[in-house]
Write a protein that binds this DNA or RNA. Structure first.
Lengths: 330, 330
DNA sequence: CTGTTAGCGCTTTCAA
DNA sequence: TTGAAAGCGCTAACAG
């Protein structure tokens, strides 16, 4: 592998025109013997078509842009794994842009990818704003969202409200009447609003004189941990956390205070990361299969690229995972 | 944003040649007034230079290939975050290829990136083989490794041996005489060999009649957990785990058997992920700053691209983090 | 300072 | 079936 060889070099070696080599490469008509010779030349030279020239000419890059809110999270990692599984099969590669949980940057990243000429864009969004919609409508690149929903775009996500409802029903059935919902900011519709709403609804339905108090936290262990005394002020019998991460933070806080879980207080999460099964006590949670979500999303994008219509989907399978962190009241 | 507009369109609007527009874009000499007019036209049209044409011509893509063994790990996520921080400043973007902890695929991915014409490659390697070296030597693209070392390539990593030594000294000082090292396969030089060796050396130095037994595990919690009884057969007073993940798996196993940590048995890790501070008991570990590692690696690659020489570096700062999981013997 | 010119490597009519 | 030729959008001599 010395100096990169081109389609022209191959043509010269075999005494055909470069058009013929191009045809060979793109399944055009070509006589058997020429095809064979070209194949041989390509084999021994290790020729590989120039990615940029091809993209320039064909207007296709085989590159998919992936906009992520953050990367140092197991959930996002799994999602990306699923995305990559599917995209790789289709001969696509991922260009990754990070938004640092910043909505504006998310939009800027989408624009950047568009200008670069990727063939499609996947956005693991934290919130779909008007700016998102406007941009998506003005650019013509296939784009699909995951993690959040919006009627004007294609998206594939879990039903966060349903997840919340499952948890709400469970907790009320366990006899809890005074709980704290330790959630995140409402700017995040899926995690901040839908999960909470689902929980509230189902919890109240089953338990009309119950009491729920809300405490807000960031996504990190550390932040959740630091909200511990805030949570305890309400004297809840259960604290329902918007993510497993948050649950783990609270678990740690309670441990330090020698408050026994689930004997004295119950804790739950959402997510189903492997680590929450290892914690002590293992966290009762709603399990989302993020890798599957990634695969579905990537497949949706591929369909969009193929010109098919993809209908919004917010019912990816999720299931309740009962472990050890919730106790029965009375 | 309708039909993509080109440098020629801008040239026509302002009545200059497209070369002048190109000059404007690339900091060539240009009169103030023309520059101003061009700028205005670019502003109002939202023109953006065509990525593929530019790359084709300039032989530069502003794309960096990043080969990762896996993506669903916090350590890798942090590394990528650091890489991205630096690359973004330089106007580069990351194309990510996953190797699924497979050495052959790692090599194949490097080749793929080379053929695509990325400007440089970062490999978070699990093992640097002859195939790696040969490929790197034959292609001329700047390439840097992280996570593993090898005298024939540029690399930036932590000193895993030193990390092991610190732990070995600490554990022996704590009076432990019979430990199990719960490590990974030796194909992974850094984690499988260096950490172990460093630990063995320092532990024995301080404690010549001590006993160490080795148990092998995969990287996952689950695998570590499943090795629990294997570990216990040796009746150790401490189990030194090659990663925090592994340590967390063992912690869970011991908890289920109601074996108290650190009263009955001590456990340690390597890594310093946030989650190990939240576990119960919090894990004593060696902390690596993976984000910093990512930044250093990316900066090294940028230097390589600039034609500077980058010397191998295996002394990224690491520090001992004493928490709650190790007890004193006697 | 600025325009003209010649490609980068490839695909794709259009004729032959 | 095949080759010639045009051109994707851009950069970079080379004159002027």
């Amino acid at each position: 592998v010395d100096k990169k060889i081109t389609i022209q070099d191959i043509a010269n070696m075999v005494n055909v025109s470069k058009s013929s080599v191009s045809r060979y490469l793109n399944n055009g008509y070509l006589s058997k013997d020429k095809a064979a010779k070209i194949e041989e030349a390509i084999q021994k030279t290790g020729f590989q078509t120039n990615f940029f020239a091809k993209s320039l000419k064909s207007k296709k890059s085989k590159l998919i842009g992936v906009v992520l809110p953050r990367i140092d999270s197991v959930a996002v990692g799994k999602l990306l794994l699923g995305i990559n599984n599917i995209l790789e099969l289709g001969g696509y590669q991922c260009v990754i842009l990070l938004s640092n949980l910043d909505t504006k940057k998310e939009v800027a990243n989408i624009r950047k990818l568009y200008l670069q000429g990727v063939d499609g864009i996947i956005v693991d969004s934290i919130a779909i704003t008007k700016a998102h919609i406007e941009l998506i409508n003005s650019i013509k690149i296939p784009t699909i969202f995951t993690g959040q929903k919006n009627e004007f775009v294609s998206y594939i996500k879990f039903n966060d409200k349903k997840a919340g409802r499952i948890m709400g029903k469970y907790i009320s059935q366990k006899g809890h009447k005074n709980v704290v919902f330790l959630g995140v900011n409402e700017k995040d519709k899926a995690v901040g609003v839908e999960r909470k709403q689902g929980f509230y609804e189902a919890f109240i339905e089953n338990n009309s004189n119950a009491q729920i108090n809300f405490v807000e936290t960031e996504f990190s262990f550390r932040s959740a941990y630091s909200k511990g005394d805030n949570v305890l002020q309400f004297n809840p019998t259960a604290v329902v956390c918007a993510t497993d991460n948050i649950g783990l933070g609270i678990l740690r806080y309670l441990h330090e205070l020698k408050i026994k879980v689930p004997e004295q207080i119950s804790v739950t999460g959402f997510g189903g990361y492997a680590v929450s099964a290892i914690s002590y006590p293992a966290l009762t949670t709603i399990t989302f299969d993020f890798e599957l979500a990634g695969m579905k999303t990537a497949q949706g994008l591929l369909d969009l690229i193929d010109g098919k219509t993809v209908e919004a989907q917010d019912d990816l399978p999720l299931f309740f995972t009962e472990r050890e962190s919730v106790g029965q009241i009375q």
